[in-house]
């Protein structure tokens, strides 16, 4: 493992983007930062700016109005970058499939590296998804 990969995979900084979610996934994403689940033991930190982040955690069924913003935020992230789609809505639109204002999935807009199913997924599942992503990146 090169020193670059080692450094990157041991301090993945996250950015959380709500692309029209119902908040359930969002509170579970915040919950993984808190003492019981504590994502910081994998070196992950939640960051405010996309320019500081390596992993984008997207929740929600991507409404048409947020679509361009999602693309812009993704483009602002430095390479190498990863996207984690959290929840059924981010994967396929979930219960909002066939709604006129919904894009039905994050992967229609930007490439996605990990999918975490559930409505909402439990914090343990989100942690598992993040760790699996890090493993595939050479943790």
């Amino acid at each position: 493992m090169s020193i670059l990969t080692w450094a990157r995979t041991h301090s993945p900084w996250l950015i959380h983007f709500n692309a029209g979610a119902c908040n359930a996934c969002d509170i579970e994403v915040v919950a993984i930062l808190t003492p019981r689940f504590d994502v910081e033991r994998f070196g992950a930190l939640l960051k405010g700016s996309p320019r500081h982040a390596d992993v984008m955690v997207v929740s929600g069924s991507v409404s048409r109005k947020i679509r361009d913003r999602l693309k812009r935020i993704y483009e602002q992230m430095p390479d190498p970058k990863f996207v984690v789609a959290v929840g059924s809505c981010a994967i396929s639109g979930g219960v909002f499939q066939d709604c006129y204002n919904v894009m039905e999935g994050v992967d229609k807009i930007i490439p996605v590296d990990a999918y975490i199913p559930g409505c909402p997924p439990k914090p343990e599942a989100i942690l598992d998804g993040v760790v699996k992503l890090l493993m595939s990146a050479g943790y």
Partner: peptide
Amino acid sequence: YNHRGIEKAMESRNYIQNLYITERVCGI
């Protein structure tokens, strides 16, 4: 930014199916 078209979707689903969609208006 978070408009998903829930009220319109409810008009084409029956009363039991709508339970799932009203619940997901907001997860909190």
